[in-house]
Amino acid sequence: MIPSTSRPPSASRRRRVRTVAALTGAVAMMALTGCSGFFQDDICNDGEYPVLSVGGTGSACAKDGEKVPEGYTRYPEGKVPQKVDDKWDVYWRTHTVDEKGNIVDAPDEK
């Protein structure tokens, strides 16, 4: 009979295998989700602030220090979207501000 030369894996080897497996899983998850759980785009670039179309769901970014463009208004305080698909970005897809500044349901898209 030939003596066995294999030994049980050492603790450091087991840790390396677990680390590689965990990293492989993280890379696979990022590939499958498109990193959506990790990164969100800003609504506007640095030096800009978001504005909402009056009576519609359109939005834009205005340069800091400049007036709000015609047909747009600032978002109500505390309800300003910061990141794409954040709570307020999603909310303003179905709501808008009327000419008097009241928050209303957005008109149906046709």
Rank of each mutant, 00 (worst) to 15 (best):
S10A: 04
P3R: 15
T5P: 07
V20R: 14
V80P: 00
V68M: 09
T19R: 15
V104H: 09
G37Y: 09
V84Q: 12
K83S: 03
R93E: 01
C35I: 01
T57G: 02
S59Q: 14
M1F: 07
E109W: 12
Y49T: 07
V17P: 09
G55A: 03
V54L: 02
R13H: 04
L23V: 15
K79S: 04
D42G: 00
Y75T: 02
L52P: 00
F39P: 06
T94S: 11
E70F: 11
H95W: 03
R13F: 14
D85Q: 11
A21W: 08
T5L: 15
V20H: 10
V20L: 15
E109R: 10
F38G: 04
D64H: 08
W88N: 04
A28G: 14
T94D: 15
S4Q: 10
A60H: 03
Q40W: 13
L23K: 06
G37W: 02
A31L: 14
T19Y: 13
Y75L: 03
A26F: 00
V20Y: 14
R16C: 13
A11T: 04
K79L: 02
T73F: 05
T5C: 07
K79P: 03
L32Q: 09
K87Q: 08
M30G: 09
Y72C: 00
I2Y: 09
D98P: 01
G37F: 07
V68G: 05
D42S: 05
R18G: 10
R14K: 15
F38V: 09
G101R: 05
D108P: 15
Y49N: 08
A28T: 05
P76S: 11
S36F: 06
D46K: 00
L32C: 11
A31R: 14
S4D: 12
G47T: 01
K87I: 12
Y49L: 02
V68L: 01
L23Q: 03
R16G: 08
S10P: 05
P3K: 15
S4T: 12
K63S: 11
M29T: 11
E70G: 09
I43A: 02
V84G: 08
T96K: 03
S36E: 06
V104L: 04
R14I: 15
D89H: 12
I43L: 01
R93N: 08
Q82N: 14
